[in-house]
Write a protein that binds this DNA or RNA. Structure first.
Length: 233
DNA sequence: GCGACAG
DNA sequence: ATCTTGTCGC
């Protein structure tokens, strides 16, 4: 049983957008959110072949880290198929079923979910991080590698420097420099956490590299799972 | 009307 | 996301 059986699944972009509009009011944006989480989960999905259409093979990974040491506490990875074609703004409908299943197989309950992509900084204010937060009830946030919606001024060159991302007259996220002189990342809240707290977690998760350890670990795990699919050990 | 467009 | 060679820098 997966999320598609619970509420059906959109067959068209219009239906998908309706679902986002219907779930958005369920978001908790009051914050501040977890200040000292013990377990932080990273989520990522890898695709096989041309990862643009629907039905292609994929691997969804969740890696739970000890927030204090960034050591891996638990891993979960599932293979499946893309549940929707890639459409900017509708990424969640592609990856949600596999990600939710991977989360379901976890024995630990994370205090925070860190997604590879956006939360509130989304055309309809309901990116993947928001959707996962509402479905699980867990605090969630997104860290994306490239710009999507909104305008911003380039942040300063030092780690920790940041500037707001504005869209339709609202601050929907923050461009954050996680390493000195390296291209910044885009942080936005998902559910039950505020932007300041999300950025603090983003910095805590990047002691060495531009991308957070959560997504680095989940990316490697999902990639390896796909490789094993092609040529099992 | 014409581009741009998370992963 | 994935497909791919070489190249610059620590």
């Amino acid at each position: 049983m997966d999320v598609r059986d619970l509420h059906g699944w959109p067959a068209t972009a219009e239906e998908a957008e309706e679902i986002q509009d219907r779930l958005r009011p369920l978001l908790d944006l009051d914050g501040p959110g977890p200040q000292a989480p013990r377990l932080i989960a990273g989520l990522d999905v890898s695709y096989e072949g041309d990862g643009g259409g629907q039905g292609g093979r994929l691997a969804a990974a969740v890696v739970v880290l000890d927030a204090a040491t960034l050591d891996v506490v638990e891993e979960s990875v599932v293979t499946g198929t893309a549940a929707f074609p890639y459409v900017p703004g509708l990424l969640a409908f592609r990856e949600l079923p596999a990600l939710v299943e991977a989360l379901r197989r976890l024995s630990a309950t994370p205090d925070l979910l860190v997604c590879d992509g956006y939360g509130l900084a989304h055309p309809r204010r309901f990116g993947l991080a928001c959707h996962l937060g509402v479905l699980t009830g867990l605090p969630s946030m997104g860290i994306a590698k490239t710009p999507f919606v909104g305008a911003y001024d380039p942040p300063g060159e030092r780690r920790g420097d940041a500037s707001p991302v504005r869209h339709d007259g609202e601050v929907v996220g923050r461009v954050l420099r996680t390493r000195d002189g390296v291209k910044p990342v885009f942080v936005s809240v998902g559910h039950r956490v505020d932007l300041d707290t999300a950025c603090r977690h983003a910095l805590a998760l990047t002691p060495r590299y531009r991308l957070p350890e959560t997504t680095r670990r989940a990316d490697r795990l999902s990639r390896d799972a796909l490789a094993d699919l092609a040529s099992p050990a």
